[in-house]
Amino acid sequence: MSRREKAWWLVAGLAIVVYALFPVAWIVSLSLKGSADLANGQFLPTKLSWSNYQLILTGGASDLFLPALRNSFGICLIATAISCLLAMFAAYAIARLDFPGKKVILSTALAVAIFPVISIVTPLFNLWRQIGLYDTWPGLIIPYLSLTLPISIWTLSAFFREIPWEMEQAAQVDGATTWQAFRKVIVPLAAPGVFTTAIIAFFIAWNDFVYGIVLTSTNAARPVPAALGLFSGESQFEQPNGPIAAAAVIVTVPVVVLVLLFQRRIVSGLTNGAVKG
C-alpha cells in the first residue's frame, strides 16, 4: 500500500470515528450547559456547569430518574438472565442434537424477532390491567423475553456450532452421560459465547421504549427510556433539555463502556451466523 493510499484510509477511518461520536459528544456538551448557555446556539457551553446532573441525581428530578434507573437495571438483568438460560438449552439442542423441529424453533425465533412490538403491546395493555401485571416488574420482564430470547437463540446456536464437540464425545467415552458432558465440558467452553449473548440481549432490553411507556404508569416499574420520553411532556422545569441530556449521558455511559471493553466479541456475536460461513 502506498503512503498516499495509507493516508487516505486513515482519513476515512477518522471520518467514521467523527460520525460515530459526534451526536454523543453533542449530548455530553449539552448536559454540561447551564441554563444561561442552553440557548446559546453553539455546540459547546461557554462555562461548564454540573447543575443538570445535580438536578437529576440529588435535586428535584431525582425521584423521577433514580427509580427509573433502578427499574431499568433490574428488569433488563432479569430478562437477560432468563432468556440466556432458556436459549442456552435450546441452542445446545439445535447445535448438537438431531431432532425434528429444529427448523421450526429457528424459524419461530426469526418470526418473533421481526414481530412488530406495537402489535404485541396493545393486547397486553388490556390483559395486564385485568390480571394485575400492569406497572410491575414481571409485567415488563415477560414481554422483554420477546425481544431478548430470539436473538439469544440465534447468537448462541452460532457460537455453539464452533465448539469442538470431540471433547464432549471424549467425555462420553470416559463414561460421562450426555448431561454430564454438557455441564462439565460444554458449559466452560461455551461461557464466552453465553457472556457475549448476554451483553447483546441486555442492549436490546435496555433500548426498549414501547413496552416501557405502554405497560407502566408510575415509578414502580417505568424504565429509563420511557421516563426520558415522558419527562419532556410533564415536567415542571422551564427547560427540560439540560436534565434530559444529563440523564441520557448517564444511561449511555455504561453501554459505551461495555462496547469498548468487549467490542471484538460483540461484533462476532452480532454477525456470527448472520451470514453463512
Binding site: I27, F203, F209, I244, A248, V251, V255, V256
Partner: peptide
C-alpha cells in the same frame, strides 16, 4: 478503534439518539 467507534451508535438507546 474503528470497530469500537462504530458500535457506539448501535449501543446508544434510540430515545437518547432521538433527543440528541
Amino acid at each position: 478503534a474503528l470497530r469500537a467507534a462504530i458500535l457506539i451508535p448501535y449501543a446508544v438507546i434510540t430515545v437518547v439518539s432521538a433527543f440528541a
